[in-house]
Design a protein around this nucleic acid. Structure first.
Lengths: 345, 345
DNA sequence: CTGAAAGCGCTTACAG
DNA sequence: CTGAAAGCGCTTACAG
């Protein structure tokens, strides 16, 4: 099964099978049909498995000018949400391509130009880029490999985005029905466009539901601890401003709001309601369970991978469909204090 | 900054700088000292940045027989714990190597032999393997690149492991002091040795603390939902058997126990105490906050990366130190029901 | 100090 | 159907 000796080359396989390197290459790459006799092809296949031959990636991609590598650029790896996206990408990519992830240094940091250059030097056959910052987008060479953006949109690039509309509307409907009128928003510092989209959509639709979003722009790194520190400062101000609910741009941010509320001695949802985006599995068992706009990460990943393989196959026809965000209502949202109805939702 | 034209080659740089390809290679690889005049080296560097030249990875690794690639094999990517490990690896690796992650299909699935072969074909200069299953270990060719295991140990391989001892002892001391006598254990299905180590350590030390671990072997996939389903079945049995506390092999498993307790109408910690391993950030805000044996993932990643670079530099002297597990005590553990002391810890 | 040349292990026209 | 040969873009002795 595994290499025994030094590295096995096509020449060794050819010698073992009593044929030429060209033939080995043809057989191994599945291009033997009608070009190599079944007898010889069989002999080659047997030698391949006997010797444990694996086509050298470097030599192969040098000769072809491209590899079977698809690289997923993942600035936001630490986000638990991302596991689903990766699983979806694997599912959508199938067996034909080899997926590798590239991720930058710090939490939420965006890959530097150098990282991108190093990835480009690998000659991936395609690139998948999750929630890129504008600067990452700039570093992506226009004559690089085909590329699909995930949860982002940019002129001239293929992209798969979420349809946030239904989820955001459901959240606003839910909050308005409970009796909330003023809501605060905790944004992420991540320079990804998806955060701007979420914020702007919420702000622009709020009015139609009789809701006001506080103008106060507050951001935190998308980790529980950073969000908690920020929210400890912001929560009292928000409440003073009349907010009775806080919406966070991601569940991990919302968790920080929960932690901050606990530190401040505020009860959720009795003193303030909290909601997030992502609907992470953990949101079922937070204290209290979190109302959240669920984003189907698996569907996003799969759609992006499918789009990429379609482009690579020269089959550009059908544009990808946006997976739809859906609200999961839980205990962290309830009627605002003083609304004369203390019952939890 | 970015490529403008087709792919830039060393030959183009050489032409632009009025020198040879050999000289370009020397300069670009930092081997110019005392072999290329400063004048020419400068000219080359200017051409490089002007043309946006990046050494082609395939050609370079084909010529050298190896690349600057370090691949981290990560069967357990979806675990939020893993973000810290990756950050630590990046920190320990420095700028000299390029880190890429390879991860298998399903949650907690182990990379198949084919994945390993594909990774090997990339000719990484080194391999980092996190919590491998025995079968993954088998697939790793003995004449492959230098390799360091993370949170695992295997004969003949370099490895960095956790020192679970202090954390496990602290957990047992804590539970015994609260008055618990019988505890149940929820293991992961992941075939990684680290889970066996945790289970066996807990079982072997329990007696010294006057504690008994139920013989019942219960396992679940390391996700909240799978663990919740399993725990819904197991919890009543455990309580019947006299257990007053459940220890889970990972926090995500413990979250499942919390979810199961909620479904069954059991109060944590009043009806049953719960504890986990990992001390994920989310464990601060679960209902209730989770007592957990913290595993320093960043330190693990960094130590493993340092070990790998030391081996690559032929500097094998100091073996890596095991990062130490430490207990974080929170509200999910309390005296057992009927102990005459209902106060939470 | 500098460059021509061989070779890394493949793939792909091109002859046969 | 099969194989010899060129070429992918580098790196590294080796001459000069």
């Amino acid at each position: 099964m595994s290499g025994n000796g030094r590295r096995v080359t096509a020449a060794m396989v050819a010698a073992h099978a009593g044929t030429s390197v060209s033939t080995v290459s043809l057989v191994v790459n599945g291009k033997a049909r009608g070009r190599v006799s079944e007898t010889i092809a069989d002999r080659v296949r047997r030698s391949v498995s006997e010797l444990g031959y694996v086509v050298d990636h470097a030599a192969s991609s040098l000769a072809r000018g491209r590899s079977d590598l698809v690289v997923l650029l993942a600035p936001d790896l630490p986000n638990p949400f991302f596991g689903d996206v990766v699983a979806g990408v694997r599912a959508g990519l199938g067996e034909r391509y080899h997926l590798m992830l590239s991720t930058p240094a710090g939490t939420g940091t965006q890959p530097a130009a150098e990282d991108v250059a190093r990835v480009a030097a690998l000659r991936p056959t395609g690139l998948l880029v999750h929630a890129p910052s504008p600067s990452l987008l700039d570093d992506l060479s226009p004559d690089g490999p085909p590329l699909v953006l995930l949860d982002a949109r940019a002129p001239g690039h293929d992209a798969v985005t979420f349809d946030f509309g239904p989820g955001v509307d459901a959240l606003l409907t839910h909050l308005a029905a409970l009796g909330h009128r003023r809501i605060a928003y905790l944004d992420g510092t991540t320079p990804s466009a998806t955060f701007a989209v979420r914020r702007e959509l919420l702000a622009s639709r709020a009015g139609a539901h009789g809701l006001t979003v506080l103008g106060d722009e507050v951001r935190a790194d998308v980790t529980l601890d950073a969000a908690a520190d920020t929210a400890v400062g912001a929560l009292p101000r928000w409440l003073d401003d009349g907010a009775t609910a806080v919406v966070a741009a991601a569940d991990t941010l919302a968790y920080g709001v929960l932690a901050a509320a606990a530190r401040l001695g505020l009860a959720v949802p009795d003193d303030v309601s909290v909601a997030g985006f992502d609907d992470l599995p953990y949101s079922q068992i937070t204290a209290p369970a979190l109302t959240s706009v669920g984003l189907p990460g698996h569907a996003l990943g799969r759609a992006a991978a499918r789009r990429l393989t379609a482009v690579l196959d020269g089959d550009d026809a059908a544009p990808p469909v946006s997976p739809i965000a859906r609200l999961a209502v839980r205990h962290s949202t309830a009627p605002p204090p003083g609304s004369g109805d203390g019952a939890a939702s």
